[in-house]
Design a protein around this nucleic acid. Sequence first.
DNA 1: TAAAAAATGGCTGAAAACAGGGGTTTTTCA
DNA 2: TGAAAAACCCCTGTTTTCAGCCATTTTTTA
Lengths: 213, 213
Amino acid sequence: MNYNLILVDDHKMFLDGLWNIFKNEANCTVLQTAHNGAQVIKYMETNPNQAIDIVISDISMPTTDGITLNKYIKKERPEIKTLMVSMHTDAGMIDTLIKNNVDGYLSKNATQTELLEAVKTILKGEKYFSQSVQQAYMKGVLEKKTETTITLTKREKEVLRLIAEEYTTQEIADELFLSKHTIESYRKNLIAKLNVKNLAGLTKYAIKLGLVE
Amino acid sequence: MNYNLILVDDHKMFLDGLWNIFKNEANCTVLQTAHNGAQVIKYMETNPNQAIDIVISDISMPTTDGITLNKYIKKERPEIKTLMVSMHTDAGMIDTLIKNNVDGYLSKNATQTELLEAVKTILKGEKYFSQSVQQAYMKGVLEKKTETTITLTKREKEVLRLIAEEYTTQEIADELFLSKHTIESYRKNLIAKLNVKNLAGLTKYAIKLGLVE
DNA sequence: TAAAAAATGGCTGAAAACAGGGGTTTTTCA
DNA sequence: TGAAAAACCCCTGTTTTCAGCCATTTTTTA
């Protein structure tokens, strides 16, 4: 069967790489390539009658990330399938994806063969999560590290960002006009909530959330 | 003219993407694809007489990174050109690349056209640093943020990795069978050398080097 | 509108990190 | 082979983080 797709990634070179893969596929048409979710939403709004079968998107992107894009698609154009692609494989991320009803997920470590396999599976109406992703997820579940999907509040994110920006507790307190005890509380909660040991863990999580760098 | 090349990136999908680009080029042969520098070195050692024109490599990779690979190439097979590709564009990184006599650098935001253009330029014996990279570099130079090219020793990298892995000084000392005073020294030197303030800064640098996550 | 969640503030004490100084021994390489 | 770089070690402070408890007020939401 023939299918139409859209490719989204903020790294042009990677996007070109994806495009090359599908360009050579006989029975598919790449409708658009975009480097953030907003472009895709715009495309869908200006071409409401264009049949789209699947959107393959990176997760972390500037402007509008993959998860936000997926939310839009599942609400406005639920017939369109979504396949998310990302650098990292962690249980929390996968959990978020599942909760958002994404149709499939691949690590950027996946091969081209697996990518095409994933698309085929998803177009059949099935979900596709690779073996390695399933393993990583199950490992997380078994280690009880998944908990209940970690959601940080606005304030927590703000504090976490400053922590990762190398501010001390006192400096953050001054910056936000709060007591240093308050920041200490946030710090403690974050360490517990994110299941990390210290500042290094907090910093890595901040990066994963895209709060810094 | 005809040329032979080797592609290196730890993300299979990206590697496949690159491969697709060059596969369709008439006058070039992809000799090997690898997901770390060590594989390439091994290839070169087992095929010492194989003519190689250019190696296109990611910078941050596990096992052996792009800079280490470039060092090997420039020492053992100086006739081979190197083109580095990376996610991030910062003046410090570019400085390191220039000092290591890399033949060219591209951000992963570069287009396929620019990639092929870069290869062509480098094979003519010229250097290739894209407009955007030159701009970023000049900006860094003007802001005097370049400093003197940071090079970490093997041991420093090892300690830095463990620091970013949330180990305490004592735990690192135990792990490496060293005195905790030694690790304290490394920690201090790293903070000074990398021009950061604390553990958060060290962690971010470790990530930038690809030592963790 | 009552309950839950978020935001705020507090204390103590121990452990770790950080700043600044001082070294010696081993390896590398010009 | 001799200097430079890397790897190693130690001490004294001060500051910051972290773990363990607690609490009140505001906002959100069921």
